[in-house]
Simulated scan of single mutants.
Amino acid sequence: MSDVPQPTRRLDRCVIELTGCSRREAENFIAGGWVRVDGEVVEQPQFPVTGQAVTLDPGASAAPAEAATMLLHQPAGLDAAAALAVVTPESRWDEDPSGWRLLHRHFHRLQAAMPLPPGASGLAVFSQDHRVLRHLADAGSRLEQEWLVDVEGELSPYGWKRLSGGTTFAGWPVAPFKVSWQSEQRLRFAIKGVRPGLLDWLCAEVGLRATASRRLRIGRIALAKMPPATWRYLPPSDRF
């Protein structure tokens, strides 16, 4: 006698039957990565289930899943599109302190915010969250950024005193900034309104040639010890 085929049901229907929740709550459980089919997380409510075991992780929440923001240690020489390709599930920083669950939905429709100037490395931001994207677009020029710049050459006498008191670049005023030597060939800038070419120009104005630049911080958010080509989540509680 042949086996009777088992009916196929949508995953969200299985979750409703398992928990007694509403369809919206079932979709939120699934989108949040709390639902497993034969032990594997499935994030699609329409996933077909035919006899597999459907389970809900302990501590599951039916709250809508948060949009993700990722912080990348961008290697030098990449534009925003090439840098986004580095943000993959495999390149997540092993020591990411956010506590966020890694979901495949977090890698959809990411947009760059305050992209690094050409040739620079360091802290880059990619987000799905329209609130983060809008904030950095509107207020980014007013957020202090911290940069390390490797230089060659000899500093002109009184150069930084003249420039840090106020100057213009490409027709735009340069906000007052702080600069100090971190080593004999490396400067640390704390500066707002960084535009492509600005740091190179500031160095050239005082007799130095910038050879490399790395962004360490935007506002209150720092690169920390994250290795190049790795990323971590920005929790919603953290603010630039």
Rank of each mutant, 00 (worst) to 15 (best):
L136N: 05
E40A: 11
R214P: 00
N28C: 14
D238Q: 13
G59W: 13
A62M: 00
G171A: 10
L143V: 00
P236D: 09
S183I: 03
L148G: 04
R101M: 12
E144P: 03
T230P: 05
G140P: 00
A81C: 04
R162M: 08
A212Q: 13
E25H: 00
A212K: 07
D238K: 14
L136T: 04
E43Y: 09
V194E: 05
V206M: 12
K225V: 02
I191T: 03
A31T: 01
P64K: 05
E17H: 10
I221Q: 14
C203T: 12
E205F: 05
S237F: 06
R109C: 04
I30S: 02
A53C: 06
D150I: 00
T19V: 15
V49G: 11
S61Q: 11
R142F: 14
P115K: 04
H73A: 07
E90H: 10
L155S: 11
P5Q: 07
A80V: 06
W147G: 01
F177S: 09
G33Y: 04
F189L: 02
R195I: 07
V149F: 06
R23H: 14
S237N: 06
H106L: 09
K178T: 09
V87M: 14
A210F: 01
L78C: 03
R195A: 11
A204K: 12
G99H: 02
W100H: 11
H106W: 05
E95T: 08
W201Y: 07
G153V: 01
D200A: 10
L223C: 12
V41G: 05
F126P: 00
G20D: 04
E40H: 11
P58Q: 01
D200V: 02
L110T: 02
G207W: 08
F189H: 00
R220V: 04
P157T: 01
V194L: 04
A85G: 13
T50M: 12
S183L: 01
G99Y: 00
A68N: 00
F29V: 01
T19P: 08
R13P: 01
I191C: 00
A204T: 12
R10Q: 15
D94K: 11
T211F: 04
S22V: 09
H106Q: 08
P75L: 01
